[in-house]
Design a protein around this nucleic acid. Structure first.
Lengths: 264, 264
DNA sequence: CACCAGTGTTGATAATATAACACCGATAGG
DNA sequence: CCTATCGGTGTTATATTATCAACACTGGTG
């Protein structure tokens, strides 16, 4: 069912900002894969520089190869450099943390962020993988990313990240419909406690959503005024990023959000 | 002998700044792997977001996953951000193109560059993979990266990149010895025509070389004066990077290069 | 229009790399 | 000194993968 390559690459998901170095046994435990298999996979990935092993502690971490690959991609398709300034203004306009993510296989990859300047803010782990079903960004992508993607996600089991997470396919489908009608998505504490998210889709040049831009606000601070302000700002940012990437908004979507994109 | 994971990841080496998008057949041809196998491997890597397939043209390119991974690594171990300013001053001091690379599996990965401002300059492809045996950076790493690495490289077949490339293991060993005695490495047109390189090793905290910093000068422009200037600047840059990464120079090496690090 | 050369994709079967298990030496703590 | 970790290693049955061929499709050409 699942190829060894996928299994090996899934191991990389366990490296995070908080735990950038992991031991063999630890990694085997978390991934639920046999220790010997993990050892072989890490060895294979080390050969190509995707991971590297500390000589002394024997811990593994992401290798220099990922930097090289990112450079190749970013040089050819400068996404991050286009997105970052837009996120900065989005964060400034709303006063909250903004981030952008792109479709990356079976999940969303957070590729750029701008944290709020406030002391109390939503702080997210760099390079986190965001599930489609529990985040505002995910909803935005599901709503405008085509039926194939939506069906695939609906047919998977939806993990409950908090007590508010939608775990029923039918209800998730309903939320996607709402998102499609409104032109933006909204989620309250479905991925993390006390985090409210508002997101807008980003389109590629075929008119399909390829990612999303989102603003995360502490739930207790979210007011009606703040909400309206954020929706307009997020939609403008989404459009700006779509344009920056050479993407194309579907006509119906452009008409839909036009009245909402008030403000400067 | 060779695992499927390695074979799959080797496919990624064929993506470059010049050719960021490749078709299935093209990739199969270059890698010498069966088309069907390449198809399955790319599919597997697409599942995890390491590559992505254009919906319309069906071409493959590096995916958003690599950006995410690079963010995780760079947040935890901010190498690029430490190296870049040092490269900038190195390039300013020498007037030529400077770059830094790290050990990445079986080769060196170029992770940061600063191009010369001159019209005639050495321009290198972003994210290029540098062979150990044909580059000044490679020599520097081989000389100070431990015997295990050196033996492994010496036992492989050395591809002739130009008519000056060293392809005999014995001669390469001799050049490594010279490098070890001098404290820096030098190569003239061994990797590319009309490119002269001078490189210094970068050490990790165990005192082993983990990478190198190098200045590439058009061969015809390399004079005695320029050479002395460059050697001092490269050695200073190497030391600065080693310090910035929390690395540790071996005592013997520090004594060796001390008299050469003249200038500011 | 038929043809051709190219593409991406999919099955079938045979070959082989892989998963699983127990095991090893080393290290650290009680 | 015993126990519980750790990283790493063999070995064999098994499941995945490589290989080959054929497929449907495209765009260009006679």
């Amino acid at each position: 069912m699942s190829s060894t390559v996928v299994k090996a690459l899934m191991l990389l998901e366990h490296f995070s900002e908080d735990e950038p170095e992991l031991g063999l046994s630890e990694l085997a435990r978390r991934s639920g894969v046999d220790k010997a298999a993990v050892h072989r996979m890490l060895g294979a990935m080390a050969e190509t520089g995707l991971v590297e092993q500390q000589a002394d502690s024997r811990l593994y971490r992401l290798g220099a190869g990922v930097l090289r690959l990112a450079r190749v991609r970013e040089t050819a398709f400068p996404i991050s450099s286009i997105v970052q300034p837009i996120l900065d203004t989005l964060s400034a306009e709303t006063g909250e943390t903004a981030h952008a993510s792109l479709i990356s296989g079976r999940a969303l990859a957070n590729i750029a962020t701008c944290e709020s300047k406030k002391g109390s803010r939503v702080s997210l782990i760099a390079g986190e993988v965001l599930p489609y079903h529990s985040t505002a960004s995910g909803l935005a992508v599901l709503a405008f990313g085509g039926d194939a993607l939506l069906q695939r996600v609906l047919s998977t089991s939806l993990e409950a990240k908090t007590r508010f997470t939608v775990t029923e396919a039918s209800e998730l489908g309903a939320r996607v419909d709402v998102t499609r009608e409104k032109g933006f998505s909204e989620s309250d504490q479905t991925n993390e406690e006390d985090v409210h998210g508002i997101a807008a889709p980003v389109f590629d040049r075929t008119g399909m959503a390829c990612g999303a831009v989102s603003v995360s606000t502490p739930s207790h601070r979210m007011t009606e005024v703040q909400r309206d302000l954020t929706i307009g700002a997020v939609l403008r940012a989404g459009s700006a990023i779509t344009d920056g990437l050479g993407g194309q908004r579907p006509r119906s979507y452009a008409d839909l959000i036009a009245p909402l994109m008030t403000g400067s």
